[in-house]
Every structure is written in structure tokens, then in C-alpha cells.
Nucleic acid binder design. Structure first.
Length: 270
DNA sequence: AAATTCTCCTGAAGGC
DNA sequence: TGCCTTCAGGAGAATT
């Protein structure tokens, strides 16, 4: 499932194929995604040149002279560069037509999004309220502590809140908390200064490591093969209920926190 | 305002 | 083998 590292890797993979390309249009086979795909997508983009492609949280922004194409991979989406004659699969919902090839959006579960934003894309309601980028200096222990002031919500839910910090999904929230030695269900009010510092640091650590791993796996980005689980073996607690904690050997526990599966070691995380 | 619950969708995995 | 049920999950929207 695409978390921030995969979105970042996707960005790096498709960027060189997109920059400076004059778009010939778009093919929309399925328009019922998270939100309806604009019916005028093809007409709107035709003839426009891709000026830039950037990431904000897990959103990708494709800048054109007159609009911005906003892409979100949801939890099963992917973007690949494919030849014009590539066979069309069941879940290949949208093709963006480049000069010689296509940017193909595939998404079995249709939680992703393809939208067209007019001027000032960062002012769009979906982007305006987003929290800080986790890999920027803006994310710090002090920042988290300030945002958490007076709140009772479980720290795991807190760091997954996009209004606080973007791009920390379920997997990396579990991992960062484990590395910090903080129990996921702790009310964020109760964390101390050193714990916030540690948590900010570990969020950066796990995301950075995952981007590095994702980069290796997705090197050959135009390959149509599915990606192997680059992060699987690096994960210390996620998906490992009942297995020994890598630190102390006690069985990893699984509980629901905020409607999400949560993995932790009750011995190492307090 | 803050916290919780609901919702979209399909494939994988488990039970019988 | 095959059918049925359950679960997973990003994150905005709706509700409490």
C-alpha cells in the first residue's frame, strides 16, 4: 500500500518521463474513484506542457500552465509509464497521453483520486489544511508537542492525523512508536519532551529508510511487474502479531486503536 | 473544537 | 474445489 515513501519513489520514477512533455489528452475508462474524475480531463489538458511534478503529503501535483492535475494513490493505486500499445488491465482506469507513451493510473480498490485544480492549487480545500512535511525541519519534537497541547487523543492517532503531519500511515506510525518506546494508546497529552523529540526523530528515520528501500525496488519503474515487499523484512512490529519482539523477545501484541490494527510490544513500549 | 465513526472498493485469507 | 465471511486500509465526511 502506498505510504509516503512509495509516493516519493513514484514521483522520482515518473518525473523524468513527464517533465517538458506536451500532453495529447487522456483516456478515462473508469471515472468513479474517490471523487468523480473530471469529465473534461482530456480536453482540459490537451496541448499543455508539464512544467513540474511535486509531492505534498501523499498527493502528487502535476503542474500545467493553466491547471494542476492532483493525483492520490489511495491504498492500492500505482502510476506507471507504459508504451502506447500496452495491454489494458482490469484496473487500468486512466491514461495520461504523453508524446510517445502514457502515464497509467491503476487502482483496484478505487480509493485514489485524479482531480483538476485551477489556480493556487495549495489553497485547494484538500491541501490547504495539511500539516507539515515529515522530512522537513518543520517536523520536530517541539512542533509535535505544541500541536498536541491539551489533547487526549492516542498518540498513534495523533501522528496519523494529516492536519498535524502528512504522510505517516499506519505501518510507519507503528514502527516509529516502537522505535521510540512509546505505547500507541498513550494520550498525547502525557508525552514528555524527550519522548516527542524521539518520536519526531524516529518518524524521519523510518520514512527515510523506506524511501531508500523503495528506491531500490522501484528502480526499474516502467517494469510492469508488481513490486516485491521492500519494507516487509525491515518492519519490526507491523504485521508481526505473536512473533517475538526484536528487542526483548516478548510476543508482539495486536490491538485496535482508532479503527486501525496496531502492533506493539507492551514490554518495550510504555 | 476535538474525538469518534462511517464510507468508498476489491483482493486476500480463513473457515467449512 | 468452491463458496461465504471477514478483514485490511487513506483519509475525507458525517456524527457525536
Amino acid at each position: 500500500m502506498p505510504e509516503l515513501p512509495e509516493v516519493e519513489t513514484t514521483l522520482r520514477g515518473i518525473q523524468p518521463h513527464l517533465l517538458g512533455q506536451s500532453l495529447k489528452g487522456a483516456v478515462v475508462r473508469v471515472k468513479k474513484l474517490r471523487w468523480p474524475v473530471p469529465t473534461d480531463l482530456s480536453d482540459s489538458v490537451v496541448g499543455q506542457t508539464v512544467k513540474d511534478i511535486t509531492r505534498r503529503g501523499k498527493y502528487l501535483l502535476l503542474s500545467l500552465p493553466n491547471q494542476t492535475i492532483l493525483l492520490h494513490l489511495g491504498m492500492s493505486g500505482s502510476l506507471r509509464i507504459v508504451p502506447d500499445n500496452a495491454p489494458v488491465g482490469k484496473h487500468d482506469h486512466i491514461d495520461l497521453l504523453l508524446e510517445e507513451k502514457r502515464l497509467r493510473f491503476t487502482d483496484p480498490r478505487k480509493f485514489g483520486a485524479v482531480l483538476l485544480l485551477e489556480e493556487n492549487p495549495l489553497q485547494h480545500p484538500l491541501l490547504a489544511g495539511l500539516g507539515v512535511e515529515p522530512l522537513s525541519p518543520e517536523l520536530s519534537g517541539a512542533y509535535l508537542r505544541l500541536k498536541a497541547k491539551g489533547r487526549f487523543v492516542a498518540v498513534k492517532n495523533f501522528i496519523m492525523d494529516q492536519k498535524v503531519v502528512v504522510g505517516v500511515g499506519n505501518i510507519y506510525a507503528n514502527e516509529a512508536l516502537f522505535r521510540s518506546g512509546i505505547s500507541p494508546m498513550r494520550p498525547c497529552k502525557s508525552l514528555r519532551v524527550v519522548e516527542w523529540d524521539s518520536l519526531a526523530e524516529e518518524i524521519k528515520h523510518v520514512l527515510t529508510k523506506a524511501i531508500a528501500a523503495g528506491g531500490t525496488t522501484l528502480q526499474d519503474f516502467t517494469d510492469s511487474d508488481g513490486r516485491p515487499g521492500y519494507f516487509r523484512q525491515e518492519l519490526q512490529v507491523y504485521g508481526r502479531a505473536g512473533e517475538p519482539c526484536p528487542s526483548c523477545g516478548a510476543p508482539v501484541r495486536q490491538e485496535r486503536v482508532g479503527q486501525r490494527s496496531t502492533f506493539f510490544c507492551s514490554h518495550c513500549q510504555k
